[in-house]
Amino acid sequence: MSGQRILVVDDDLHIRRLLHATLTRAGYGVIEAKTGREALDLAAGDRPDAVLLDLGLPDRDGLELVALLKSRAGVPVLVVSAREATDDKVAALDLGADDYVTKPFDGEELLARLRAALRHRVSAQGGEPVVRAGGLSIDLSRRLVRRDEAEIHLTRKEYDVLEQLALAPGRVVTHSRILAATWPLDHDRKIEYLRIVVRNLRQKLEPDPAQPRIIANELGIGYRLLADT
């Protein structure tokens, strides 16, 4: 299972069910919105990893949402629409959409385009697709953590913190940067929460959590992932 969650924005129940089946079969979690307002709320609060966006929504045109969703969630937005006109495709891409898929769509092609968009996101953030540290393999494009090919199951918050460290292997990542990227609401950005998550990560990842060799503490500053060189 990838552990990644996809926000599906479409007012058509049949399409939502089809996309839900396609995505869950491929190992993704699915969040659903029927309106633009729901989409913006879920993008901010649930922190999806990508958005599949229909343009024909009941409360506003989907083209208006492309830039808003990109800024609100900071993740790939793929338009999935019945609109075939070149003008619509160009407008969506110019507004920041990462791809444009026309309905009716082929499920396997849609999944391939989604995977490509997720890989591109990792590259755009300056990260390597796979980071290795202390016998661990951290696959940033698939959100998978393994040791000796066995998957290590992390909570979403644990993975989100680890991802911030893996995007800058060997470098110090400040507390404030991790908190801002991982806790979407300002009032939740408490250093105590971060320390609890890091402690839980060490319990799952470190051979000896009392003497960490994978996640190092930079006192008063942040944390560093001691990646293999």
Rank of each mutant, 00 (worst) to 15 (best):
R16D: 11
A33G: 05
R199K: 12
V51M: 07
D228S: 14
A21L: 13
P209T: 06
L95H: 06
R146T: 12
T102Y: 04
W183V: 02
A44K: 14
R113V: 02
L111P: 14
G36L: 04
G96N: 11
K70I: 03
A97R: 08
V172R: 09
R37S: 10
D99Q: 11
G45D: 04
L63E: 05
L13D: 15
D12G: 00
V66N: 07
H175L: 15
D160M: 06
P169E: 01
D10E: 15
S81Y: 00
S141A: 15
A150E: 15
G74E: 09
V80S: 07
R132P: 00
T182A: 08
D188N: 07
R17H: 08
T229R: 15
V79Y: 00
L154E: 08
R115H: 14
D139R: 07
R115C: 02
E38D: 12
D186W: 12
D106T: 01
A216E: 11
V122Y: 00
T24D: 01
P48H: 02
R16K: 04
W183T: 03
A216Q: 15
R189H: 10
D11V: 01
I215Y: 08
S137V: 13
R147D: 05
D106A: 10
R119W: 09
K204D: 00
T229A: 15
V9D: 05
L78V: 11
R146V: 07
L23Y: 02
R189M: 04
P58G: 03
A97F: 11
A82F: 01
R224G: 09
L111R: 13
D188L: 10
I196V: 14
V101G: 05
E149V: 03
K103L: 04
P104Y: 07
A92C: 05
S2K: 13
T229Y: 13
R37D: 11
R113Y: 02
L68P: 10
P184F: 05
